[in-house]
Every structure is written in C-alpha cells, then in structure tokens.
C-alpha cells in the first residue's frame, strides 16, 4: 500500500509528500499531547496538531475551513486552554504524574479502535483516488450555510451564546 501511496500520479506527488510530512508531524505531536508530563507542553503540542490539521484542510481543498480552524481553534480554543491550565495549575505539577491508574487500559482500546477503523477504511475505500479539485469557493459554503443549513446556523449561534453565558455563569466567583 505504501507503494501505492508513493506511486501516485505526477501532479500529486508533491501533495502526497506534503501530506506525509504533515501527517507524521501531526501524529508525533498528538502522541506527545497524550503522553507528556507537562500540561503546558501538552497544550503546545496540541497547537501543533491543530496547525497540522489546518494544513491538511488546505491540502483537501477546504481553505475556509482551514482558516477558520486556525482562527477559532488555535486562536481562541487554545488560548482558552492555556488560561484554564493557568488558573488550575496550583495543585497539579509534575509530582503526581498525569496518567491515572488505569492508563494501561487505554492502549488496547486505542489500538483496537484504530485497527478496526483502519481495516474498515481500507476495506471500503482502499482504492479510491481523491479527485483533484480546485479550492472550494467560499461562496458555495455561504450558500449552504444560509439556505439549507440556515437553521443549524442560527442554532449554533444560540449555542455559542449560551455557551458563553453559561461559561460566565459557571465560572463566576459568587
């Protein structure tokens, strides 16, 4: 299969390479997220992962999503995470270790899950070639948002509002 991946058509060799490098970085970073002993380090590794995701989005001809990813996730969510880490840092340090007692259970679960997914994916999509498309026009996205998915769009704005208010309410010091 690796041969198939590498031996793609000429136009996409660059894509494949890029993809491969970014994917490797992402996997490495993700592994670090879940294994590092330092919470802040984990957050920073998560930033790496998120960035890689954004890059993948671009490779997948979803630019608006990539940009949104960067803006929202890396810009807001990660900051939020860092704030959260900061505010709750006092009791947690490197002393206790960041893995709970049953961490070993996670390995087989994760491996099993990955194996299953991999098998299913390969079984279903093993030979599919991604079509070569140009970048997706944002117009098409907005068309979708404001026509078919209008209600979810408005709903999600409510959700965000509720989340914001809720967060404030929850985190108040009263």
């Amino acid at each position: 299969m690796s041969a198939v991946i590498l031996a793609a058509d000429s136009v996409n060799v660059a894509q494949n390479v890029a993809f491969g490098i970014i994917a490797a970085i992402m996997i490495f970073a993700a592994l670090n997220v879940v294994t590092t002993k330092n919470v802040v380090h984990a957050a920073l590794w998560l930033v790496v992962v998120l960035s890689g995701i954004a890059a993948q989005y671009i490779l997948a001809a979803a630019e608006f999503v990539a940009v949104s990813q960067v803006l929202v996730y890396i810009g807001a969510v990660m900051v939020l995470f860092l704030f959260g880490i900061m505010l709750t840092r006092a009791q947690i340090g490197k002393e206790f270790g960041l893995n709970n007692k049953g961490w070993a259970l996670g390995i087989p679960v994760a491996l099993g899950l990955f194996g299953l997914l991999a098998w299913v994916i390969l079984d279903a999509f093993g030979d599919d070639i991604l079509p070569d498309r140009g970048p997706a026009p944002t117009v098409a996205l907005s068309d979708q948002f404001l026509s078919i998915y209008l209600v979810p769009f408005l709903a999600i704005s409510f959700v965000l509002l509720a989340a914001a208010i809720g967060a404030i309410v929850l985190a108040r010091k009263d």
């Binding site: 993700a30 879940v34 206790f96 960041l98 893995n99 996670g106 390995i107 994760a110």
Partner: peptide
C-alpha cells in the same frame, strides 16, 4: 485513536 487513549489515560 490517540484521542481516545488520551481520554482514558489522562488524569
């Protein structure tokens, strides 16, 4: 899968 591992294993 890595995320699942993290959910399970992280304290």
């Amino acid at each position: 899968a890595i995320g699942v591992y993290g959910v399970i294993a992280r304290r």
